[in-house]
Design a binder for these strands. Sequence first.
DNA 1: GTGGTCTAGACCACG
DNA 2: GTGGTCTAGACCACG
Lengths: 122, 122, 122, 122
Amino acid sequence: MIIRIDELSDVPIYQQIRNQIVMGISDGTLAAGEQLPTVRALALEMGINTMTVSKAYQQLKMEGYIMTDRKNGARVRSNIEKQGNMSEGNKTELKRIVSEARLSGVPKQEIIKLVEKFYGGK
Amino acid sequence: MIIRIDELSDVPIYQQIRNQIVMGISDGTLAAGEQLPTVRALALEMGINTMTVSKAYQQLKMEGYIMTDRKNGARVRSNIEKQGNMSEGNKTELKRIVSEARLSGVPKQEIIKLVEKFYGGK
Amino acid sequence: MIIRIDELSDVPIYQQIRNQIVMGISDGTLAAGEQLPTVRALALEMGINTMTVSKAYQQLKMEGYIMTDRKNGARVRSNIEKQGNMSEGNKTELKRIVSEARLSGVPKQEIIKLVEKFYGGK
Amino acid sequence: MIIRIDELSDVPIYQQIRNQIVMGISDGTLAAGEQLPTVRALALEMGINTMTVSKAYQQLKMEGYIMTDRKNGARVRSNIEKQGNMSEGNKTELKRIVSEARLSGVPKQEIIKLVEKFYGGK
DNA sequence: GTGGTCTAGACCACG
DNA sequence: GTGGTCTAGACCACG
């Protein structure tokens, strides 16, 4: 899996890494049980600080997306907890995005198409 | 219009104000041409600094959502420019939200319903 | 002569009036010796405060573009002083505009064409 | 790069900083990718508040001229977006400048020479 | 009365 | 060490 940092973005690097791994798990780029690169390897590959990668992994672990053990490093969890609802923060954020899109003249169907694309046929 | 700040959020206060006004314009709580509270009044009401409110208003102004003049204060623009497409940042953010929702077991239809609700019947 | 206020502009109203009169004199819309509307009449017509119009006229008078007498009101001066050089402020402002245009990819010739258009064939 | 503030100017300090950096980028004083002084350093050097410098940098960032990250500070963007046209505000401002110059007796060719000088041979 | 600018100073997350 | 946020308070031009 290739992780790309948008250096123009205001989103912190560790968050961008975390987000891309979550999106990778959702869209199937990262399979359940799949091994993630080590903190060192990823940091080296991306030319960033190991602390930054570590922070991303720690958050992913805390959120239940990945698990780590000393032997095998980090792996995608196969049994991610399905709480069944969106966080309030994500709902608000979704409303913000939809509002901005609507005010920009983006048709409702176009947003829905994007949702379907991102969600996938699963 | 009532603006509520989530003090626990890591979204800066001025951004929260900005976001809520954008959402208010989109959902009709704030009508085109409507007066916004003065910088001082809103700051007093919310118990925050005028600079913070001012920053929100200036961003809204720069983005074309509102206009300000020294006589009348700030009001919602009646002719908000419609660029017709979502920003790359918002698309990525939408993908993140959809991915997280999907991994939490939220059905696709539930997200789409939210989009339709936020977009409105217009 | 029709004066239009851009209410989205950050340029103060009295400055906009002053600028448009200067541009009108330069492009011939306002002839030398021509009568300007009274402060009252212009304020009424534009729906603004007489103080604002008065401020514009006072500046124009101070700059030597117009002259006022009690009997005839304000008239365009027929002998505007030709100092022969641009103010430092205007040179800097010109450099800013040219710089922004250049960085936006506007060709040099396009700017020059605008200058020629605004200057006129005179 | 040396930034000089005109204390007599009615252009706000943060705008003057912003303008000089834009002009510096255009005329090559500031190269693509070049580091800008840190907010603190520039504020100290100029004897002004960090907020004022920060405001200039944030505007430059929003306009796409520079990028900032917390590690490296601010630097000139190497791929400034070229919209290809002048803003309406700049066109009006150019007309004002040309009009004033013409009424002062400045020959058209002198203005054009300035434009060519500011634009550079590129 | 209004928004806009600026200061001095503090605290914060990111890296 | 860096930019970003926020406060308390002051002053200003515009209208």
